[in-house]
Amino acid sequence: MRVMVWILGLCFLGLMSQKLIALEEQFAFASQTQQKDFENICKELRCVTCPNQNIAESHAPVAKAMQAEIYQRLKQGDSIVDIKSYLVSRYGDYVLYRPVMNQHTWALWALPFILLAIGAYLWFAKFYVAARKS
């Protein structure tokens, strides 16, 4: 409970910062594709101090700092994969909204489709059996 208040407090402080200092940078790129890439990366990264927002939507300083870092790296020509793995090395898998596919998370990605296949089979079995009977 206290921790929630603490985290919300940090977020709140983040919001407060806007009243005192205007540090909103504009992240503009020369090329459209880079701009799109930037927007897409930001939408897939989680603000680590907020309840549930991506770094584009969040006002928290951490989120803005992350955006600044991504902006610099994209400008230098780093690939999206490299930028993401850099942030994961600093903040852990928690910062990615798209779960990585590894031995722990394969079930997460595979189960929906496995379940769909099982369900389709069961449906067919039930109705086909009935059709055969009658």
Binding site: L10, T49, P61, K64, A65, E69, R90
Partner: peptide
């Protein structure tokens, strides 16, 4: 100023 060292350090807040 930009918070980039903070990102490098894995800063979550202050």
């Amino acid at each position: 100023r930009t918070g980039q060292l903070g990102v490098d350090l894995g800063i979550v807040g202050t």
